[in-house]
Simulated scan of single mutants.
Amino acid sequence: MSALAISGALEAGLLFSLVALGVYLSFRVLNFPDLTVDGSFPLGAAATAVAIVNGVNPFLATAIGMLAGGAAGLVSGILNVRFRILNLLAGILTMVALYSINLRVMGRPNISLYGETTIFTPFETLLDFGIWTNCAVLLFIAVAMKFLVDWFLSTQIGLALRASGENPVMARAQSVGNGRMTLIGITLSNALVGLAGSLFAQSQGMADVSMGIGTIVTGLAALIIGETLLGSIKVVWATLGCLIGSVLYRFFIAAALNAGFLGIQAQDLNLVTAVVVAVAVVLSQARRNSRFRLWPALRRALTAPQPQKG
């Protein structure tokens, strides 16, 4: 691959690592299959693009996109917690509604940001890394968000959030409000996704109403690849796996599309994505099953009575 293709894959991987962190909070920590992601990603992009075009400072516009994504997650949480709608269906309803809302926000199917000042503009002269400038900025943001998630999940609220997702009955017995934890977790999850959409629009120079299609698949693929490599027991390793898994996933896609001898073309992107996700799931299950098969043997070896000496 060329240096441009490598930098593009790295940039996309770092961007979608924020999505993977959001998916980790909803799917793994809260055990909440949230499909709002496919709508909150373009919502963050749309809100940021509209703000930038109207002269808002790009850093403030990025915060607006993040808050917009969090608001979308809050709606899904309210549908589930207050109106008792199944979590999967709540996410689908919000995702479908957001397509129309995104059109309303932008006023048209897409908005161009070419020639506009974005969050990356000041660093183009400050860092002067050429095609790697955006990668450097996104790496800093991704690592910062990873440490923020680690810190949050170690706080009292974060521990309550983890307890609520792991064992709701036990959490309720410890006076933890499961509904309140769901609202907090899904809001934070989609805020991260909205931030990813905001940065994606500024990086690519446009926001499009259909740019969120398949976002949840990308986030899950990154999450599963990271768990396969680093495991998911400790939060620190799980969040690091989100970053590494996202970057590796984008490199797999880029390598497949640039491997001319395989005959893969741009229209085969969805096929390649499905294959990569399927392989990641199979490897994850194989890793888990091998661990469970080895554990009884290790336990028997450790607990077996020692032979008595003559």
Rank of each mutant, 00 (worst) to 15 (best):
D128C: 10
A97P: 04
R104M: 15
F83S: 04
N54H: 10
T48N: 03
R108Q: 14
L113I: 06
G130N: 12
L79G: 01
L98V: 06
F129P: 08
N87F: 06
L88F: 15
A136V: 12
G73D: 02
Q156M: 10
L138W: 08
Y99A: 14
G115Q: 08
I101P: 08
F152M: 03
L60N: 07
A71D: 02
G115S: 09
F129N: 06
G73R: 01
A142G: 07
I64K: 06
S76P: 01
N80R: 10
G70T: 01
I85E: 06
T117V: 14
L139F: 11
N57C: 02
V137R: 08
T48L: 05
L126P: 04
T94P: 10
S112D: 04
R108D: 14
I92S: 15
M66L: 15
N87E: 14
A45I: 07
W151T: 01
G65N: 05
L139V: 03
N80Y: 04
G91P: 12
F120C: 01
L153N: 00
V143I: 12
M95T: 12
L86K: 15
A68R: 05
M66S: 09
M145W: 08
I78P: 00
Q156D: 13
A46C: 03
A45P: 08
A45H: 04
M95E: 13
S112I: 09
F59I: 07
S154C: 05
S112N: 09
R84L: 03
I52L: 05
